[in-house]
């Protein structure tokens, strides 16, 4: 464990909690892409199946359970409890254009052709593009609530910090996982445009435009 990975995980946890609390407190999921949240639930489910097969550490197990629990709770709030506030018209990204290529790629390029490993690879590839429906929805509505931008900032920051974690691990442990690194770079690049707008902050006053 290193400082980049720990702060990355905490940033990820913060993003998940921020979103869940925002929806719960405001009793509304306006401006939130339910499709992205479903993709994240799939990402955690397919990646953390090893909860059933191996124990790494209490931290690892607790975080995985929290991530999965919050992901499904968020999907439940969006599609069940507060479904009346779900903005389906603007959440129109064709996720099949993400899931199918990612599924095919995970069967073709992986570390080991075993079910668990292919599902892990699928999860890594899917996570790198899972935010696209959300970014697409914001570009269509032309605006994002402030709290939603904080959610996206923390979410984007987490994988950027993981990139530093992989540099650290390569240098100090000689460890590197090319699949996770390439997907992590793609995932972080997708946030660059958003990061620029978020940091310049100028756009807070007027609606966020991609």
């Amino acid at each position: 464990m290193n400082v980049f990975r720990l702060t990355g995980d905490l940033s990820h946890l913060a993003a998940i909690i921020i979103l869940l609390l925002k929806i719960w407190k405001s009793r509304s999921c306006a401006g939130i892409s339910g499709k992205s949240q479903i993709l994240f639930a799939i990402v955690f489910t397919t990646r953390y199946l090893d909860l059933l097969t191996s124990f790494i550490s209490l931290y690892n197990t607790c975080m995985k359970v929290i991530y999965i629990g919050c992901a499904y709770a968020t999907v439940y709030l969006i599609y069940a409890k507060f479904r009346a506030t779900y903005d389906g018209n603007h959440d129109s990204f064709r996720v099949e254009f993400l899931v199918v290529p990612v599924g095919g790629l995970s069967v073709l390029i992986n570390h080991d052709f075993s079910p668990l490993e292919i599902l892990w690879t699928f999860s890594i590839y899917l996570e790198s593009v899972a935010i696209l429906p959300q970014l697409f929805m914001i570009s269509k509505t032309g605006e994002a609530e402030t709290i939603t931008t904080h959610y996206l900032f923390c979410l984007g920051l987490y994988r950027a910090l993981y990139l530093f974690n992989w540099i650290w691990r390569f240098y100090f442990e000689g460890f590197f996982d090319m699949i996770a690194i390439v997907a992590g770079v793609v995932q972080t690049v997708l946030y660059c445009d958003f990061f620029y707008l978020y940091v310049t902050k100028g756009w807070f006053s007027r609606p966020y435009r991609l």
Binding site: D9, H12, R47, I56, N60, M63, K64, H111, D112, D177
Partner: peptide, 10 residues
């Protein structure tokens, strides 16, 4: 294939 170390990252 090299034996895959279990994925220890979240």
């Amino acid at each position: 294939d090299i034996e895959r170390a279990q994925h220890d990252e979240l």
